[in-house]
Amino acid sequence: MQRLHRRAALMAALWVLAAAGSAQGHEYKLGSLVIHHPWSAPVAANAEVAAGYMEIINTGQSDDRLVAATADISTACQIHEMKMAGGVMTMNEMADGLVIPAGGRVVLAPGGYHIMLMGVKKPPPLKAKFGGTLTFARAGTVDITYFVQESR
């Protein structure tokens, strides 16, 4: 009887964990890096650029650096930092890549860092998915899938 209860409690706990996981999105592991829920916002039908977002967590003891990215829908990708100051948006290409500090996390999100997808021929619609890769200086390259979803 007690064992049954314990089993039920365990099942419930697992179910809660699974539900929480799916609500928060998909993720990829690469060495000590965790890439959490890559996504992209829908853009105009003839737009030639889009942006990729995600969260990158470094569980390791050494800093790593996101140095390159590719996406199926674009001819080129760059790592950019967007800043707002006094109502002016400035965008800088991060030529040396984006540092993912040891034991830290970096969020790529609207208003900050993003992967700029350039040369987009056919922007994917809402709820579509598209593939891509991320390359890190230490951890190497990983295949990811972007989910196209509303920004907020």
Binding site: A41, N46, A47, E48, A50, H114
Partner: peptide, 10 residues
């Protein structure tokens, strides 16, 4: 501008 990845579409 239309080649704006984020602020303009948002």
């Amino acid at each position: 501008f239309t080649h704006c990845p984020e602020v303009c579409p948002t």
